[in-house]
Computed example of a mutant assay.
Amino acid sequence: METFFAIQSRSSIKKFSDAIVARELLEKCLESATWAPNHRMTEPWQFRVLAGESRIRLSEAIAEQMSGASGYVHESSPEERRELIRERVTYPRRMFGDVRQSMEIEKIRKKLLSAPVIVCVYSDQGKDAVVSRENLSATAAAVQNFLLCAHDLGLGAIWRTAEYFEGSHVKSFLNVGDEASFVAAIYLGYSEQRQVPRRRTSWEKKTLWV
């Protein structure tokens, strides 16, 4: 696919089919991400790939984090832990007394299961504020590489963000250090979304020749 056409035709996909993404296609996207420009060659990106049951376990980790019940749940067996999370969604008043929070958790769970693959992307902290900022920019460029490669391979994707990916409990589940900065959750799969032409403000209105 010609580069400019790929940039111009790529769009964010919110509706995916259940078709499984071949591992070799996913690996190609990840490899393309690592060729992003990065000052000082710090290669600051970290990727965490979730598919199948791991998306459900992520939703459980988020539920634990939001409820503040992580310590209690982790003392239970895996079976008891799943039942606690399930009851937490189904019977919020009896267990936690917060219906709105439980509805939000269920909404998050459905979103996490809406795509067959989720790639969480984090950026390493630098030795100082300047390097940390450069690392964040480089990792964002890596995400763009990933999105363009996915589009070229016939896959659909969307770059999502959410504050719960910054939480220490979710980071622990993903084996990411507390100091790392969350950059993106890439939802990936095959699109079932009707193609809608995108619109952008003309570059002339955003450019000043100095």
Rank of each mutant, 00 (worst) to 15 (best):
Glu2His: 02
Glu2Cys: 00
Thr3Met: 05
Ile7Leu: 12
Ile13His: 13
Lys14Ile: 09
Ala22Gln: 09
Arg23Lys: 13
Leu30Gly: 00
Glu31Phe: 10
Ser32Pro: 00
Trp35Gln: 14
Ala36Ser: 14
His39Leu: 14
Glu43Ile: 05
Phe47Val: 06
Val49Leu: 11
Leu50Ile: 06
Arg57Cys: 10
Glu64Pro: 00
Gln65Asp: 15
Tyr72Asn: 04
Glu75Lys: 13
Ser76Cys: 14
Glu80Phe: 03
Arg81His: 10
Arg82Pro: 12
Leu84His: 04
Pro92Gln: 15
Phe96His: 09
Val99Gln: 07
Val99Gly: 07
Arg100Asp: 11
Gln101Asn: 08
Glu104Ile: 02
Arg109Pro: 14
Lys111Phe: 15
Ala115Asp: 11
Pro116Met: 00
Ile118Cys: 08
Val121Ser: 07
Tyr122Glu: 08
Tyr122Phe: 09
Tyr122Gln: 03
Tyr122Thr: 06
Arg133Gln: 14
Ala140Val: 07
Ala141Asn: 06
Asn145Pro: 04
Leu147Asn: 00
Leu147His: 01
Leu155Gln: 07
Trp159Thr: 04
Thr161Trp: 06
Glu166Ala: 09
His169Met: 04
Lys171Asn: 11
Gly177Arg: 05
Ala180Val: 03
Ala180Lys: 10
Val183Gly: 03
Ser191Ala: 08
Ser191Met: 06
Glu192Ser: 10
Val196Pro: 01
Arg198Ile: 06
Arg199Gln: 13
Arg200Ser: 12
Trp203Met: 12
Glu204Ile: 14
Thr207Lys: 01
Trp209Cys: 07
